[in-house]
Each structure stands twice: as structure tokens, then as C-alpha cells.
Design a protein around this nucleic acid. Structure first.
Lengths: 337, 337
DNA sequence: CAGCGGGATTTAGACGATTCAATTCGGCGC
DNA sequence: GCGCCGAATTGAATCGTCTAAATCCCGCTG
């Protein structure tokens, strides 16, 4: 009933376990006739290789952990897609882990992955200085930071978030806005901080623009809507005329609140989001957004990881940085005078 | 450099490996002083338990595979969320696998999970009669079908899709529609077939309603948009006045196409989707949708799995079926006369 | 015909944790 | 002082696979 082991296969095929193992791992070196006989026996017995035993022997697994902040955010699923496509080629498996922007959950996932002796970990960390990450690496599990720049000690793949913030800021200021709000959080997260910093820089250069920072705990639709409801309640004079949301989910939620309050987008309030997820273009008012190449990020991260493992000595850590684009759609396509 | 083994810990703490193992697995039976000493050593050495070795010995892992048709579909991420919440309580880990409605990818994931001696598998299969699934179970990996009813040989958790189809059909017919289109696919997928069957039944009962079935390969936004573009090109006389999409992504795509073609929703074309994902309510025109309790599905599936493993003998397979609700929003809120 | 080369196959020893039967030890009752 | 009990701890076997070194076998060469 239990699946047979390599030993039973060997016995039934009249060969030794070593040969069966060779058929599995280096088929080229075993004689064609023998190979076929073993393969047939494997078929007949329904043998399934025991990865646990293999990992134990080899000392390392073939699972790549991909720890993201929010699986419900299409940005991350696109990213996962990219990573997975490459993993497949390297005969490795991606395990998608959702930290939900919660350091505790994140830690839990990291523990699990380390116990499994994961092949490596791709992570969008809550805090990229978390000593835990260094610990992982020190103990032998390679880590690549995703959507977050590392400082030399690690490989990383990221997007220039400050530039993203500047792009959004420049666009809004050039469109005539003089009261702008930034929505995002937690501000301790580097990505968020950078997007905000980019915007802030631009605002300061412009001189006569008022900027309000609104921090949220979690960047989901619900929080965006909540902030939107608050702003909608303000008088038109004190309300910002444009908001820049640190991701599209916030922006979509915010947009819903505007619709509910009968405020016009972009005339009463312009909105720019971040990530350019598929739903952004499909929103009630198509959403302007700072686009990040999610799939490419994932693919590149996996590439760095495989490279790091394959020749560990020659490897030097690299930090790859991509450029974001601003995609202007209806939600901010209005010049205020 | 490599993480130390239980043996080193034992040596450094001046006890035997058996005791260390006991500290890890049955702390209660070891003397407090010894326990503390061992724990301190574990800390000091940075020992991390090797899951592979554990699994090998125990014969089964602690990973639960959750194989879904599309991770980008919020319905499935909600489902995953539900499953994960329960997994945590049982000291087990969820591995999210994306089959992308592709039997080959699905098979690949199943192979991986079986090789890992997964604790169990929760799957929304492409084809629920796939003999592979029976094979898995026969060889000892428990399987629970999700969002799909099983026929006694397996546990399953599903939603009454025929009822969902009837709810949508009744609503549209009562709203005065007499030319209705169904969009979904592949029709070989039970869920899709059932949703269509429910609609068809209702249409036949009404007598004077024309029904068109439009099959798509994949139920994503892009395909919905494509179908929408085709229908928009028809003359108003031949065009259906209402469409029922087998999931919300299709519906959202379809909605985009209507907007692009300057057709009014719901006046020119009414739309009802399926799943009631978060984005449905946030769409350009808030989307009517047949709601499924995604989180509950996931949670219940995990419950059945744990139950099945915990007392394998007493266990009888169960098929849990939930009822869907129709949520009427603006996209179909219009009575045609 | 002895010896050799080399491809094919076998053998045996890890890998690290779990488990359970066996052992040790201190104390307690008689 | 003896024997016994139970709690705490030990030790060894085991899980299934990989791998490096050893062996086997054949045909060929000199």
C-alpha cells in the first residue's frame, strides 16, 4: 500500500539500488536495456521518489520560497508567475508564502523554509534590515530581496521607487495641483518611504505645493476606501485635489469612496496609483499608475538565486534596479487651472 | 558553517540525541533543568531542525498542497487565506500551487507534492475524474476536492453551481431579458458546465428566451474583453441584452469592452458575474455577482483533510455543499420592458 | 593466452531525526 | 539493608536515497 522504495524496485528489476538511483539521476551512464527494465518496473510498481530522503542526503531541497506581502495583490501574483516560469527550467519548485505585511507571519514562513532546507528564498521583506535575513544567509540559505534594494550583503531586484514617486509628483504638479496627498503605509517599509520621498522631493522643488502624508496600516482596498471617505468629508477648499497612492489597491478603494461621495475623478480629485495591476485599467475610472515590471522582477530574482547557488564561490552579490513608467489614464488626465 | 545537527547539540549539552529529540517533540517528559540546558544550547548553536530528516523518519511531511486554477483570481486567494488560517492551528504549512487551468502544470504540481510526501492535497482539479487523483489517494496522499463535488470516493467542498446558474438566470429573466448569453469555459470543467446548466434549465422553463453559449479557453479579463468586443460589434437587435459570465474576471473584461464601445451597462447590456470578488463591487459599474463563500470553502476543505488524516480509519468521506447567493448591483439593476 | 582498458554495476556508508526498548538512578517502604 | 518503582535518560535501529570507491565482465591487443 505504501509506495515502494527504491530498494523494492531494485529487487524486482534484478539490479542494485545504486543502479536504480542512477537511472533516476544519471540515466546516461546506465545501459539502455537495464535502464528500460528499471523504468518499466518503476511504472509497474508505481514508485514515487521520496524527496525527503533525497534532500536529507543531498543536504538541500529544491523548493524556492517566495515570500510576498500580499498574495491578493496582483502585482505579487504577476511577480510569482515570472519567478515560477524560470524555476521550472531549473527543476526547482516555487512555494508561495503570504506574509500579509505581518512580521510574525513572515518569520513563521522563514522558519519553515529554513527547516525544509529550502533551495533559496526570494522575499519582499517587511524590514530589509531584519537580522534574521542575515542569519539565514549565514547558515546557508541564500536570500534574494525582491522589490527592495539590498546594500551589498545580498542580491536584490528592485524598482527605483523614488523615481516612481517623482514621476507621479511631476505629473500631478504639472497638471496644476497644489494640494496633494500621499496615501500609503506603513512608512517604515522602504518601498513606501521611497515612493513618498520621491513625491516629497518633487513637491519641495515646486515650492508652492501643500503635501499631506496619510499613513495606513495595510495597503488594501478597504483602507483606501476608508481614507477616501475621510477626505470626501472635508470641504472642497481643504481637500487635496490629487492623491498619490502607494499601491493600486489603495487607489481603487479610494476611487470607490469618491464615487460613493459623488465626487468626480479626475475633476474634483485626481488619483495616481502604483503597480499598474490589471484591474487598474479596468476600474470605474481607469487608473493612472506607476508601472513596475512585475513578471520581470520575479524572473530576474530567480535568475540571481540560481546563479548564486550554481557557483557559490565565483558569485558576487548584485543589485538589479529597474525603472518604473508612469501610465496616465483618465483618473489623473485633467489639467487644473 | 552548515547548521549543526541534533547530535552536536546533544554533545554540547552533555545529553544524548534522544533527549534533544524529546525536548523538541515532547518537552513535558524531560526534566526542567535538562530541558533548559538543551534549549540554551540550541540557541547558542543556532540549531535548526532538519525537516527532511524528520519527514523521512516519520514517513509523511507537514506540507499541504493547495492547487488552484488561477492564483491571480481573488476568489482563490480568499480561499487560500481560509485554508491557511486553519493549517496554522494544526502546525502544518500550505503550499500554494497555480495550475493555470493547465492539466500539464497541474500534473507537475501533483507529482512534486507526492514526491514530497505532502501531508495532503486540496485541489480544484481541471478534471475531477482524473485517474491520477485516485492514484494519489491509493498510494497514500489524501486529497480533498475544492469547489468541486466528489462522488463518494473523496472528500469535497463545493458550492451548488447549478443553483448559482439558476439564481442568475431567474434574475435576468425576471428583469425582462429575452436574449441572454453565457460566457465561460472550458465547458469540460464541471463548475462551468454546472453554472451553464443552471442557467439553461431556467431559460428552458421560461420558454421564450434565446440563449447563446460562448465558450472561452481561459476565464481571465482578457478573454472577457475579447468576447465583449465581438458582441459589441453586433447589431442591437441580434445582440444579447444580458450576459452571465462564469466568473468575475470575465465579467470585468466584458464590462471594459462595453465601456470602450460606448454601450451602457445595464441599459444596453446587463451583466452578472460569478464569485463576487472584491473588485466586482469596485468596478466601473458595480458588478452583480453570484457570491461564493471562498474563505469558508478553504477552511472547510482543510478541516476535512485534517480530520481524514487524524483518524484515518474512522473517517468516512464527506461532500460538503454550500449555497451561493446572488448579489445584485448596478450592472444588472434595470428592468427591461 | 595473459593482461588491460573501460563501461556497467554493486557495495557500503552516510545524511539527521525519531522512537522505543533498555538502563540508570534516587528515593521510599518494609 | 533490600527490593522495587517510576521518572529520566540513553542507545541503537530505522526511514529512503545518493555517491564514491570497488568490483565485475568483455572484448581486444600484443
Amino acid at each position: 500500500m505504501a509506495t515502494p522504495s527504491i530498494k523494492e524496485v531494485a529487487h524486482r528489476a534484478g539490479v542494485s539500488v545504486g543502479t536504480v538511483s542512477n537511472v533516476l539521476n544519471r540515466p546516461a551512464i546506465v545501459a539502455p536495456a537495464t535502464r528500460q527494465r528499471v523504468l518499466d518496473t518503476i511504472q509497474a510498481l508505481g514508485f514515487v521518489r521520496n524527496e525527503a530522503a533525497r534532500n536529507l542526503r543531498v543536504g538541500r531541497g529544491r523548493t524556492v520560497g517566495l515570500v510576498v506581502l500580499d498574495v491578493a495583490n496582483p502585482f505579487f501574483t504577476d511577480l510569482a508567475e515570472g519567478a515560477e516560469s524560470l524555476a521550472y527550467e531549473h527543476d526547482t519548485v516555487v512555494m508561495l508564502c503570504n506574509s500579509k505585511t505581518d512580521p510574525v507571519r513572515e518569520g513563521h514562513h522563514l522558519d519553515q523554509l529554513e527547516q525544509q532546507r529550502a533551495f533559496g528564498i526570494l522575499i519582499t521583506p517587511f524590514d530589509s534590515n531584519d537580522p534574521r535575513l542575515r542569519g539565514l544567509v549565514a547558515r546557508g540559505t541564500p536570500v534574494v530581496l525582491v522589490d527592495r534594494a539590498a546594500d551589498g550583503g545580498l542580491c536584490s531586484v528592485s524598482v527605483d521607487d523614488k523615481l516612481g514617486g517623482r514621476l507621479a509628483g511631476t505629473h500631478l504638479i504639472e497638471s496644476g495641483h497644489r494640494r496633494i496627498a500621499f496615501i500609503g503605509g506603513p512608512l517604515t517599509m522602504q518601498q513606501v518611504a521611497d515612493r513618498q520621498a520621491g513625491l516629497t522631493t518633487t513637491v519641495e522643488q515646486a515650492g508652492d505645493v501643500a503635501l499631506e502624508i496619510i499613513e495606513v496600516e495595510v495597503m488594501g482596498v478597504a483602507h483606501g476606501r476608508a481614507v477616501g471617505e475621510d477626505l470626501a468629508a472635508l470641504s472642497p477648499r481643504s481637500r487635496p485635489t490629487a492623491v498619490f497612492c502607494a499601491n493600486d489597491l489603495l487607489a481603487l478603494g479610494f476611487l470607490q469612496a469618491m464615487a460613493a461621495a459623488n465626487l468626480r475623478v479626475p475633476q474634483d480629485v485626481a488619483i495616481v496609483g502604483y503597480d499598474d495591476i490589471g484591474f487598474a485599467a479596468a476600474a470605474a475610472v481607469p487608473l493612472s499608475s506607476v508601472r513596475q515590471p512585475a513578471g520581470l522582477l520575479g524572473r530576474t530574482a530567480m535568475e540571481l538565486l540560481q546563479e548564486e547557488v550554481e557557483d557559490a564561490d565565483r558569485h558576487r552579490h548584485r543589485q538589479v534596479i529597474f525603472q518604473p513608467d508612469l501610465v496616465i489614464r483618465q483618473s489623473s488626465d485633467f489639467v487644473r487651472r
